[in-house]
């Protein structure tokens, strides 16, 4: 894996030791409001799902995994890198896909937006162009290369958002409710895309059938992980609990 010419990145990577994402005694509060408390976890599986009600803290949990949120206390390490002190190295390893692709697409045209992430990584123009082409082909966006991103359908926008992250070639990707705003057909399409990924993924979702074939599913409630195990156990448990 190469990260292009950068001075700051190399030193960070050298510190990496343990593989996987490790949360230790994580507590997070926004002002007075505690959203996560006493979370200790090690995620090494290929596919991990996170489910729970609105406001349970699962969205914050997702944001802790790539340093978008730094815990109030406790530590989060990704392959040994601390999200508090080595946030840039962490973000280069962990991609993040948001619920609303409209907030994630920041350039006016499809190709320009795909180039954004790789360009920020300091890759040369030839490599950026190569990755853009690769993603355009892979996600059926080649015909939309110079089209305004605004004119894509909701499903295409989410694919573009995912492709924009994949163009950065992260080792892991966190998805925060990637299908919540999509219709059934597009939900299935995104589910297939996630299934086909080689990267390790963590998927926060309300769509339980997205988690078929996952290795592990966590249930978050009131800021705590209340169930943790194979989806065959935790998903029915969660459904029964919801009544």
């Amino acid at each position: 894996m190469r990260w292009g010419r950068r001075a700051a990145g190399g030193a960070d990577d050298a510190v990496a030791t343990g593989a996987g994402i490790e949360l230790r005694g994580v507590r997070h509060a926004f002002g007075e409001r505690v959203v996560l408390d006493g979370v200790t976890l090690t995620l090494t599986e290929h596919r991990v799902g996170v489910i729970g009600g609105n406001g349970s803290g699962k969205s914050t949990l997702a944001r802790l995994l790539n340093g978008l949120v730094v815990p109030t206390s406790g530590t989060v390490r990704v392959d040994g890198l601390d999200t508090r002190t080595q946030v840039r190295a962490v973000r280069r390893r962990v991609g993040f896909v948001f619920q609303d692709p409209d907030a994630q697409i920041v350039h006016p045209t499809v190709a320009e937006d795909l180039a954004f992430g790789p360009h920020n990584q300091g890759l040369d123009d030839a490599e950026v162009a190569h990755r853009v082409e690769e993603m355009l082909d892979r996600y059926g966006l080649a015909g939309h290369r110079d089209h305004p991103a605004h004119l894509l359908s909701g499903g295409q926008k989410q694919l573009l958002a995912i492709a924009g992250v994949l163009a950065m070639r992260p080792q892991r990707i966190v998805f925060d409710e990637p299908t919540t705003l999509l219709d059934l057909a597009n939900t299935r399409r995104v589910a297939r895309v996630i299934d086909e990924l080689e990267q390790d993924v963590v998927v926060v979702t309300h769509h339980l059938d997205l988690l078929d074939g996952f290795d592990r599913v966590l249930v978050v409630e009131d800021g705590q992980v209340v169930a943790d195990g194979a989806p065959a156990e935790t998903v029915p448990w969660y459904v029964a609990r919801m009544g």
Binding site: R6, A8, R92, F96, A103, Q104, F116, N120, G122, M168
Partner: peptide, 13 residues
């Protein structure tokens, strides 16, 4: 958040 996640605040190149 999306800008940060996509490396917009990364080392200037």
């Amino acid at each position: 958040e999306a800008l940060d996640a996509r490396g917009a605040d990364d080392v200037p190149v």
